[in-house]
Design a protein around this nucleic acid. Sequence first.
DNA 1: CGTCCCACCTGATTGC
DNA 2: TGCAATCAGGTGGGAC
Length: 268
Amino acid sequence: MPELPEVETIANGVNERVRGARIVSVWTSGKPQTFKSPENEIEEVLTGARIERVRRVGKTVVVTLGREQGQAEFLVHLGMTGRLLVAEREVPLPAHTHAVLTLADGREVRFVDPRRFGRLSVVREAYLGPGAEPTTIGDEEFAKLFRGRKVAIKAALLNQSLLHGVGNIYADESLFRAGIRPTRAAGKLTRTELARLREALQKVLARAIELGGSSVSDYVDAEGMTGYFQIEHAVYGRGGEACKVCGTAIKKMVLGGRGTHYCPVCQR
DNA sequence: CGTCCCACCTGATTGC
DNA sequence: TGCAATCAGGTGGGAC
C-alpha cells in the first residue's frame, strides 16, 4: 500500500502523538510471517522502552527507543495494506490486528494488516535503509544510480536498493511529469531527461506529502484519515481516461509485474 | 550480479 | 443473486 508520502504522513502523525511516551506492555498476534525478528525479542525490546521519536526511512516507519539496556529501533514495514494507528483503548480492535503497544496513559499503538505483507522487526543500531533518499538526492548521484542499467526506468525507480521509498503510484506519476515512457532503458536516458525525472519525482513526492498521501483503497494515517493526492493523479488508476494535458487515452500495461500507466503522446 | 517471475495474503470488484 | 476470476500503494527468493 503505502509509499514514501504515505509512510511519512503516518510516521509524522505517530511521532506527534506518542513521542516521549512509555510502552508498558506489548501484545503480538503470533502470525509468524509478520515478525521478521522473533516475537519474544520484539516484546522484550519494546516493553518498558520510551518512544524517543518516530520517523520514515524509505517505506519503513522507524521508532527510536530509549532503553536502559541499550540502543534499539523498532521497524514497521506496512507492506500493501498495513496501518499504524494510535487509538484510545475503548476503540474496538480492528480485524487483522497483529501488534498492540499499550502506553502508560492507556492509549494504544496498533499495527493492523489484512494481507500480512507487512513486517515488524527490531534492530540494535540506527537503521539507514537500503538505498538513496529520493527527496534530497542531487542530479549527479541520481544519474549515477541508473548508469549502465538495461532495465526499464520504471523498474529501476521501484528498486529499493537504488532509491528507497518510491513505489508504483509515484513511479508512474513522476515519469508522466517528466515526459518519459516507463519502458525506456534506465541506462539510455539522457542527462537532461534524468534531471527532469529527478525534479518531477521530488515535486510529486513533496506535493503528495502536503496532501497527506494517496488513498486508493486502504491507506489511512495514524488517526485513520485518508490522503488527497489521488485527486491529482495524472496517470495512475486512469487507464482509458483522457490525458489531462493532451486528451489522448491513458494506456495501461504490465511492466515488471506491476500495472503501469502512461500517456502515449506526452511520454516518449 | 542483474533481471525476470512468482509466491506470499485478504478483500473488493468485475464478469459470466 | 452467486460464484469464480482478477486485481491491488510491496518484497524477497529462486531460476537463468
